[in-house]
């Protein structure tokens, strides 16, 4: 039996949709749990009451500043986990919790929600609402290869994860942390003279806030939930030739390890 990595699911203020998406790998989830990862912490899946030491923490949801337990837990997660992953739009960018104004029974004073990167350093972002099963799977496999693989596999995993780490570094930057919406497409792609009208953003948007008009994204900003999927999916946000040029081999690798 190969040595597995330890993974925890840390639940902040989120809807559990990210966890469901992870589980939506179906038999792939069993493969991950059988061969590559042990779940050592997850409110809904493991009978563990306190954040343990772990290799990878998948954090779902934003942090409610008025919820002392959440604030403590996210800080503890940073101490106990080697790699902290912001799983999904809420943890990474705030997502729909950005629009909260409090006033909800039975804790109406709980009104302030921030992405986890506002309070702790985050290593990897998986944007999207919900993040896709395949993207979560890929990050799990790459995290495994990074921690337990051969030198060659470590190199691949590092290259694969780098753009997602760059997104985390960018999201944790105080000056930029309020972005992550259709505005990113305008500021960092179209305004920068980089958009070539492929339509990836429109396909990626979970709320259909983006349509393509005369070949360019038209963003209904009132519909945008700030999940970050459009920008991250855009081939002109990041494009790492060293990884993506090897798409055939990497696809075979992923298919192979999931068999």
């Amino acid at each position: 039996m190969v040595e597995k990595i330890t993974v925890g699911h840390v639940h902040m203020s989120g809807c559990t949709g990210c966890l469901v998406s992870f589980v939506d790998n179906y038999e792939g989830l069993f493969k991950i749990l059988d061969n590559y990862a042990d779940i050592v912490y997850a409110l809904t899946l493991a009978d563990v009451r306190h954040v343990p030491e772990m290799d990878v923490a998948l954090v779902e949801g934003s942090v409610c500043l008025q919820d002392k337990a959440s604030v403590e837990e996210i800080k503890e997660t940073r101490e106990k986990a080697k790699v902290v992953v912001a799983l999904g739009g809420c943890a990474a960018y705030g997502n729909i919790t950005r629009f909260c104004r409090g006033g909800q029974w039975n804790q109406p004073q709980m009104e302030s929600f921030v992405p986890i990167g506002d309070l702790i350093d985050v290593d990897v972002y998986i944007p999207g609402c919900a993040p896709t099963p395949q993207q979560i799977r890929n990050v799990c496999i790459m995290a495994y290869l990074l921690l337990k693989g051969t030198d060659e596999q470590k190199e691949l995993a590092t290259a694969y994860l780098k753009p997602l780490m760059d997104l985390a570094a960018r999201g944790s930057d105080a000056k930029r942390s309020s972005d992550a919406c259709g505005c990113d497409l305008m500021y960092d792609v179209i305004n920068q003279g980089l958009c070539m009208g492929c339509g990836s953003c429109a396909a990626a948007c979970p709320v259909r806030a983006i349509s393509m008009e005369y070949g360019k994204p038209q963003i209904e900003r009132d519909l945008c939930i700030k999940c970050g999927a459009c920008y991250a999916q855009c081939p002109r946000s990041f494009f790492n030739f060293d990884v993506i040029n090897e798409f055939e081999g990497i696809t075979e690798l992923i298919t192979g390890v999931m068999e």
Binding site: S21, I126, P127, G128, A130, P131, T132, P133, Q134, Q135, N138, Y160, P163, L164, S200, A203, A204, C205, P206, A229, C230, A232, Q233, P235, F239, V243, I244, F247, I250, T251
Partner: peptide, 12 residues
């Protein structure tokens, strides 16, 4: 190919 390797908003 980016959508296949980084399916961030490309479920299934």
């Amino acid at each position: 190919r980016k959508a296949q390797l980084y399916p961030i908003g490309m479920r299934d």
